[in-house]
Simulated scan of single mutants.
Amino acid sequence: MTDFVLVAGTWLGAWAWDEVAAELRGAGHDVHPLTLSGLAEKQGVPAGQRTHVRDVVDEVERLGLRDVVLVGHSYAGIPVGQAAQRIGERLRRVVFVDANVPVDGESFLSGWPSDPVRQAIAGHDGFWPPLGAPEYAGQGLTDEQIARIVGGSPHPGATLTEPAVLAGPLGDLPATYVKCLLDGDEPMPAVAELLKSDSWELVELDTGHWPMFSQPHALARLLDAAGSRP
């Protein structure tokens, strides 16, 4: 039995993991989907990136979890990666699901053409609204699944613009990186560099960027396997 803490990316809350969590619980694991501050049922709570790191660390400590697998999807890889360093011996493994990884001194918006996102944040009172339905084409999602994502909550902009602060080399963590192939078949450069570490492994999933919706059973099996790694 493994304790999983599941954290979804922008616009999403703990609800995004319902199908994955059910399957992992059916396999005998304890599963703790987490909504980050400012999202879903926590809308209205002020949040920067440091807040989201604390959200993850506080959840692990509040529940007294040990031998825990932290799972971060998309944006959530940035706070989850930092939290993984901060929980020390409580960590069993960190899993990045088609995720951004934290780079010391850089933000989620660093290193890619992010001006449209910055403009959207500036034009929506400091929040990044969910993208329109056409932006999710080609990601293996049904219309119903796309509607669920589009219906998510605006994402606090400060969490996307604040820089990450690493406590040590991220490559030292025991980590699994899940690359979703419909979102591009090559990991981003920061991930490719980390995958050179003996502590990191790459696993591919033949689906799009939101596998908790498009392939929840395959993702749950993959997480189950990652949680059994030494």
Rank of each mutant, 00 (worst) to 15 (best):
V178E: 03
R25V: 12
V80R: 00
Q119C: 02
V117C: 13
V203C: 07
P130Y: 14
R86L: 15
G64C: 09
P33G: 04
S114M: 05
R118L: 15
V150F: 05
L182M: 15
L24M: 09
I78D: 00
G77N: 00
K179W: 13
P169A: 12
T161W: 07
V203K: 13
P46N: 10
W11Y: 14
G157Y: 03
A158M: 07
Q85T: 03
E19F: 01
A190C: 05
S214F: 13
S110V: 07
S110F: 01
L223I: 07
G26K: 10
D98A: 11
G72Q: 07
A175F: 06
P129H: 11
L166K: 05
P211H: 08
D18R: 15
L6G: 04
T2R: 12
L12W: 01
D198R: 14
N100F: 14
G72A: 09
P130A: 08
A133P: 10
T207K: 10
K179F: 05
R86T: 05
D206P: 06
L219D: 02
V20A: 08
L141R: 00
V5P: 00
Q145E: 13
A220W: 11
V165K: 15
H29M: 12
Q82Y: 03
G140P: 01
L222Y: 01
D58F: 09
T159H: 09
P79L: 11
V68P: 00
A225F: 08
F213E: 14
G111I: 11
P33L: 10
V71N: 03
S114G: 02
G111D: 06
P169D: 15
P154G: 10
V20E: 03
P211Q: 07
G26W: 13
W15T: 08
G152I: 07
S37D: 14
L131K: 04
L219F: 12
T10A: 15
M188V: 13
G88Y: 00
V103Y: 05
A22E: 13
E162Y: 09
L195G: 08
G64E: 08
R93K: 09
S197F: 13
W210L: 15
D18A: 15
L34F: 12
V7K: 01
G168R: 14
H52F: 08
V68N: 00
G13W: 06
A8D: 04
D198F: 06
V117G: 01
A192C: 10
L39P: 00
F127V: 06
A16M: 12
G72C: 04
G111W: 12
I78M: 14
